[in-house]
């Protein structure tokens, strides 16, 4: 049973292709993460599901309804939190909440148990104008407003962007609770580290889906030997690694450079020697376990290489 079925979706803005032949199926009651960098097409895809845009090709069914012909049915049962804080800044916290409750023909009291955990944190500030809240509190209010009508499907567009790490952690804990209440959640994020919080994820890059799987599957499918390199001059080392003819792909990651060789079997010390010959100093080289970001980078790099070859 799927709550969202995306079939062969393509979306263009003029000549720009925003989404190219996307296929995703989101199961009832799961947290599905759409993960990709800025400009990958995350917002466009969420807006298509939210019945706010019309695709050029393909079809989307949300909660069993077609997003074009049956959009009114979807709008009644959908909770949507746009990427930008979009509540009325001049209305107070409680006024915003009551407004959204009455728009959906319900009351704050009726569904209070659903938002209690989240709302109780901002309730002390309920008479403050929404525009004067801090980032984390704004986000909690926006989530409360999206939940007040007890939606069956929750669409969250980059809910944690611009929010501090503590609030981000809290936010994901709230999402887990909502999932336990039976709400299907479709969330986009540019943060790779948030992928592990999702039941399943899809990598999106330049309007295309690179991979769909559970976070564990994605990591266990990573069969390359991944090396982390560190030296005194990171930039020089990166350039030197790029000149190796046995290179498969390389990219900077935090204070390290992540390197994958095109050979299956080789010795790490060989790489070390070459780097030393090229004048790199204080080199640290180690074999590491991949994380989600490495999996994303691999998919991206491999596709980019394929494109160059073709």
């Amino acid at each position: 049973m799927y709550d969202i079925e995306i079939k062969n979706i393509s979306k263009q803005y003029g000549d720009v292709i925003a989404l190219n032949n996307i296929n995703i199926q989101v199961r009832k009651g799961e947290i599905f993460g759409l993960i990709g960098p800025d400009g990958a097409g995350k917002t466009t895809l969420i807006r298509l599901i939210a019945t706010l845009l019309v695709q050029n090709k393909g079809e989307i069914k949300a909660l069993g309804y077609d997003t074009i012909s049956q959009f009114q049915e979807i709008r009644n049962k959908l909770g949507y939190m746009p990427g930008r804080f979009s509540l009325y800044q001049d209305l107070s916290v409680i006024e915003n909440l009551e407004l959204f409750a009455s728009i959906f023909g319900t009351t704050v009291e009726e569904n209070y148990n659903l938002i209690k955990d989240i709302y109780s944190q901002i309730e002390p500030f309920k008479n403050r104008p929404a525009g004067k809240l801090s980032g984390g509190m704004k986000q909690k209010l926006a989530l409360s407003c999206a939940l007040i009508h007890k939606p069956e499907l929750l669409l969250l567009d980059e809910p944690t962007t611009g929010v501090d790490p503590v609030s981000r952690k809290e936010f994901w804990e709230m999402l887990s609770k909502l999932k336990n209440m039976g709400i299907t959640i479709f969330v986009s994020t540019p943060y790779m580290d948030e992928a592990s919080r999702c039941d399943r994820i899809a990598f999106i890059q330049a309007g295309e889906i690179l991979d769909i799987a559970t976070p564990d599957e994605i990591i266990s499918n990573f069969d390359d030997k991944l090396i982390a390199v560190k030296s005194d001059n990171k930039y020089k080392t990166l350039q030197d690694l790029k000149t190796l003819n046995t290179l498969r792909y390389v990219y900077p990651s935090g204070e390290y450079i992540h390197y994958v060789d095109s050979r299956k079997e080789y010795s790490i010390s060989g790489i070390m020697e070459i780097l030393e010959q090229k004048g790199n100093t204080n080199i640290e080289l180690k074999l590491i376990e991949p994380n989600i970001e490495d999996c994303f980078m691999k998919e991206m790099m491999v596709r980019a290489n394929e494109r160059i070859i073709h």
Binding site: A50, T51, L52, Q72, R75, N76, L78, Y80, P82, R84, F85, S86, L87, Y88, Q89, F100, I103, F104, G105, C145
Partner: peptide, 13 residues
Amino acid sequence: ELGTMELMLVSPM
């Protein structure tokens, strides 16, 4: 401009 229209559109209004 403020994006509130986006939320109104998604509502059943």
